[in-house]
């Protein structure tokens, strides 16, 4: 449905993305995961025809996005990273405006947006600017869907939205997927990766890996040890002294990525001996976040070595 072929784009001489190639199949929920400034928005803007690539080609439903931009514009639903609706128009005025410029009556595709829009219904006459963050995203999604696009492109739709709204939003995306809409979504939150069919991990304008969430976890070639303690800072310092390995805190836990097997109880003892008494170490199941952290750091190290 969407194909990037060796895409490159620079801004004023600085490459934003380079040598990007990947494909998204029809009906797929595809996630583009990466930190701020990785190049996610650039890739989406090239697909939605608002930016021209410097090199490579990008295809949308078999159409070149540069030559055939009019086809793309008719058939894509795009939600930019910033809230891009008219804040001084009411909810219903926004929806009607976008329905009209896409030449569809609201009723025709109402079934597609019903689940999203029904929560906005009580606020129909409220100005869009006065809505909460989560509600704004729902309205933007409704407006992007109103013309029943073949592909939905969502640039960081859950950025800055509270946890409950984020979960709701992902449920809505799954629902849309079941109705046959191809969805490309970008996010800086790694935990959202597991909700996609396939994900691409992007960093510094380059794709590190494209796979299913399970596939990415399977490729993890290290052992993950979960270390629980109240004294995270001291424990991290201690681990750094002991090993040349990566260790990160995830909430109340430290995850240590070990290229070889170690004995959890002996590590516990060593840490206790260093004054961290409440510690407990166990071999954990790596999650997708662990794989990303590991991948991103190894690629940074490789890049610096070059």
């Amino acid at each position: 449905m969407v194909r990037y072929e060796n895409i490159g784009k620079s801004y004023e001489g600085y490459p934003a993305v380079s040598h990007i190639s990947f494909e998204v199949g029809e009906g797929e929920l595809f996630g583009l995961i990466g930190p701020d400034g990785a190049g996610k928005s650039t890739l989406f803007r090239i697909l939605t025809t608002v930016l021209l690539p410097d090199e490579g080609h990008c295809f949308f439903d078999g159409h070149d996005v540069v030559k055939d931009y009019k086809y793309v514009r008719r058939n894509v639903g795009y939600m930019p990273g910033r809230f891009s609706l008219y804040q001084d128009l009411s909810v219903i005025e926004n929806l009607e405006f976008f329905a009209t410029i896409f030449q569809t009556p609201i009723e025709e595709n109402y079934d597609l947006i019903k689940d999203v829009y029904k929560q906005l219904k009580p606020f129909e006459d409220r100005r869009a600017g006065a809505l909460s963050g989560g509600m704004k995203q729902k309205l933007a999604l409704s407006c992007a869907l109103i013309h029943r696009p073949k592909v939905l492109v969502l640039d960081e739709p859950t950025f800055g939205v509270d946890a409950v709204s984020r979960k709701e939003f992902w449920d809505m995306l799954k629902n849309l997927k079941s109705k046959g809409v191809t969805i490309l979504v970008s996010t800086p939150y790694m935990d959202e990766a597991s909700l996609c069919d396939r994900v691409a991990l992007i960093q510094n304008g380059q794709i590190l890996m494209v796979d299913t969430p399970e596939g990415i976890i399977r490729r993890f070639d290290k052992r993950m040890y979960a270390i629980q303690t109240q004294r995270i800072y001291q424990a991290l310092n201690a681990l750094q002294e002991m090993y040349d390995w990566q260790a990160y805190s995830f909430g109340q836990e430290i995850h240590l990525y070990a290229p070889e097997t170690i004995d959890p109880s002996s590590l516990t003892d060593r840490l206790k001996a260093m004054g961290i008494e409440d510690v407990s170490v166990s071999l954990g199941e790596p999650e997708i976040e662990d794989c990303f952290m590991d991948l991103m750091v190894s690629s940074n190290i490789a890049e610096n070595a070059e």
Binding site: R45, T49, V50, R73, S84, L85, Y86, F98, I101, C143
Partner: peptide, 12 residues
């Protein structure tokens, strides 16, 4: 306000 972006990505 960024709204021009969705106007571009429309058949208008």
């Amino acid at each position: 306000l960024g709204t021009i972006e969705i106007l571009y990505v429309s058949p208008l």
